[in-house]
Amino acid sequence: MAVTSPSLARRASAGLRRNASMVVLFLVLLVLGVLVGAPFVYMVTGSFKFNAEIFAYPLRFIPTNPTLENYQRLLSGEEIPFLRQVFNSAVISINQTLLSLFISSLVGWGFAKYEFRGKNALFTFLLATLMFPMQVTLVPLFLLMVRLTLLDTYWSIILPGALSAFGVFLMRQTMLAIPDDLLDAARIDGSSEFGIYWRVGLPLAGPGLSILAVLTFLGSWNNYLWPLIALRSDEKFTFPVGLATLFGLYKIEYGMILAGAFLATLPILVIFVVGRKQFVAGLTAGAVKG
């Protein structure tokens, strides 16, 4: 670009100002980042402390007397079957995520790409279901699970959790952007309607699917209330329910809880770092479009 000299000077000063405000912004974000990160760091370092040191003056981030005792007690399985509970969480979360992705994308596809009688009414109803708090259904849902003999099984968590009006909404919004020409082209090639969803809709909804996968997985992985009610034996508990056990009436096993929290967060963290490009792309590209 050709630039004349007076405007160059103006640009330079504007650039300087812009750089200065960028530095300020960067510093603000850095401070916020420290505030956001501190509880995590405290969780990790606290997991290497004895309970006595977590509550001792002066407060320190770095343990003065680091110990692996919390991890040993946790992994020994003598107090709670922690590894088993993490495994339960993994099975439930993965299955729930897969099922939810399939249902949400299929239903979202139906709403995004077809005109049919009753569509608006059904979609409004679907959005209205978002308003119902989970707590309303707790007791009846529990009684239903009893009747279906699903109580204390993985399915009692997976099945209700896989239905997500939010997920359908998200997928519909993403799929609206897929051009109809592609569908027509596929139809001319002789593809079935399901085939179009599978080969055209799903691949092009990638970013939306990935954000839904992340949110569903995290929601399921971290869910507390419903598993607390639907699962009954500590061998079946998910890890948040198991860790809450250490939160005793008269004694709170902070060290062990923090160790468990760190271990349970670790796999998510790894997935996060490995798939970070895709997450950010998915989170930003696929989310909501008006």
Binding site: L29, L32, G33, V36, G37, P39, F40, Y42, M43, L218, W221, N222, Y224, F239, P240, V241, L243, A244, F247, I252, Y254, I257, L258, A261, A264, T265, I268, L269, F272, R276, F279, V280, L283, T284
Partner: peptide, 19 residues
């Protein structure tokens, strides 16, 4: 930054409350 500010959501509510 984008990833980092999202990170509080990856921890269970139980753990968050305890921390």
């Amino acid at each position: 930054f984008r990833l980092f500010f999202f990170s509080p959501l990856i921890t269970s509510g139980v753990v968050v409350a305890i921390i």
